[in-house]
Amino acid sequence: IRKQVRKNIKSNKLIQILEFPVLFLGAKPSNTPAFYNFMNYADFGLGTWHPIGGMYKVVEGMVALAESLGVEFRTNANVEKIITDATNKVSGLVVNGEQIDADLVLSGADYHHTETLLNENVRQYSENYWSKKTFAPSSLLFYVAFDKKLTNVCHHTLFFDSDFDVHAKDIYDTPRWPDNPLFYASFPSMTDDSFAPEDCEAATFLIPLAPGLEDTEELRELYFKKIIIRLEKLTNQDVQKNIIFKKSFCVNDFVEQYNSYKGNAYGLANTLFQTAFLRPKIKSNKVANLYFTGQLTVPGPGVPPALISGKIASDLITKNQ
């Protein structure tokens, strides 16, 4: 990507904008196939779309469709074990201590975590395999409410007032908390009135980080101060005294809530040797009726690829059953 972008673009600011999405793919621009420039085309050519009411409205729409087709959902249900029989086929699950029979299992959970629910002899990938893989970043997120409207920002705002290459190095080469991170800010209430009361603003701030970093409340607070001071300086406004709500989400939360390997937020990196058929398989080669979907398998991380993954898995299940 770096070679292709710099061949055609001379403006340093434009170069930074076109290379920034690569941070979430799991490698530096110099190590990411130019094919992934399609992300920039999707952003700038096709546009960024916002579902009124937020991304969860998409989830609610999918649930409503599924329920109309007879699907039953069980929420707050922790899968503790995948049971296989003597022929290495899934026969059931242990969910919240209760055994449930199953004809097949399609897991959209973290791939590594799903395999830990199996007996070791039917796992496809060892701990050594996962430890050698290159993962996309984790993130430090802040969900913030302001009791006034903000100025000099857009719904989607990227802050490039620090060195891109230094931050990328802190994620991929020598994993550490960055001194002066780039960050992304979203102000959805500028587009969608349902996100905040009148004359108020809702915001999400995101700092990409290396997975597996130490995560403490003190570090989170330190980095919130870093970015909010820079926001005030760059947009020429005071906002700290107008914060009426703040919640953070980081490495520990990705592990606790999603069983995410090392707390990654975006799955496996899209490096050349972790692309397409070189990614973990959708169908288990050791358990006949076990399938996988989501960001750690084909085609890769991100909402559209994860949805495509589900389509591929469903077609494969239909073909095999």
Rank of each mutant, 00 (worst) to 15 (best):
138 S>V: 08
170 D>C: 02
159 F>W: 01
208 P>Q: 13
140 L>V: 09
126 S>I: 02
164 F>L: 09
184 Y>N: 10
129 Y>W: 14
205 F>D: 00
191 T>E: 07
135 F>G: 03
129 Y>S: 07
207 I>W: 13
183 F>G: 03
156 H>C: 04
130 W>Y: 09
178 P>A: 03
169 K>M: 05
192 D>A: 06
208 P>F: 12
190 M>E: 05
149 K>S: 10
185 A>W: 06
164 F>I: 05
190 M>K: 12
137 P>K: 10
165 D>V: 01
184 Y>E: 10
154 C>Q: 13
177 W>Q: 05
147 D>Q: 11
165 D>Q: 01
199 D>K: 13
136 A>P: 03
126 S>E: 03
157 T>A: 06
165 D>I: 00
209 L>F: 10
132 K>D: 15
152 N>H: 06
196 A>C: 02
175 P>Q: 11
178 P>K: 03
164 F>N: 09
192 D>F: 09
154 C>P: 01
185 A>Q: 08
143 Y>M: 14
174 T>G: 01
198 E>M: 04
204 T>L: 15
189 S>T: 02
156 H>Y: 04
184 Y>C: 02
183 F>K: 00
143 Y>R: 07
151 T>W: 00
126 S>Q: 10
190 M>F: 12
172 Y>G: 00
178 P>Q: 04
190 M>H: 06
180 N>E: 04
135 F>A: 08
208 P>T: 14
133 K>Q: 15
166 V>P: 04
204 T>S: 13
184 Y>Q: 14
135 F>P: 01
164 F>Q: 15
153 V>Y: 07
133 K>E: 14
191 T>K: 07
179 D>R: 00
163 D>M: 06
198 E>P: 10
193 D>W: 02
199 D>A: 13
169 K>R: 08
171 I>D: 07
208 P>C: 06
157 T>Q: 12
136 A>N: 01
151 T>I: 05
207 I>C: 04
159 F>G: 00
203 A>T: 11
193 D>Q: 11
168 A>N: 04
130 W>P: 06
153 V>Q: 03
175 P>F: 02
165 D>P: 02
153 V>D: 02
190 M>C: 01
152 N>S: 09
167 H>Y: 09
186 S>K: 11
176 R>Q: 09
164 F>H: 06
153 V>W: 08
187 F>P: 03
188 P>M: 10
197 P>M: 07
183 F>W: 08
151 T>E: 07
141 L>T: 14
201 E>M: 14
166 V>H: 13
198 E>I: 09
148 K>F: 00
184 Y>S: 06
154 C>H: 14
145 A>R: 10
159 F>S: 02
198 E>S: 14
171 I>T: 02
160 F>Q: 03
143 Y>Q: 06
128 N>R: 14
190 M>N: 01
151 T>D: 12
206 L>S: 11
138 S>H: 12
165 D>H: 11
199 D>L: 08
129 Y>H: 07
171 I>W: 06
154 C>I: 06
174 T>I: 12
177 W>G: 01
152 N>V: 04
155 H>E: 11
204 T>A: 15
154 C>N: 11
145 A>V: 05
178 P>E: 03
182 L>S: 01
161 D>A: 13
173 D>W: 05
131 S>N: 15
201 E>L: 07
154 C>F: 15
187 F>N: 01
198 E>A: 13
198 E>R: 15
149 K>W: 04
149 K>L: 08
161 D>F: 08
136 A>S: 13
154 C>K: 14
193 D>A: 15
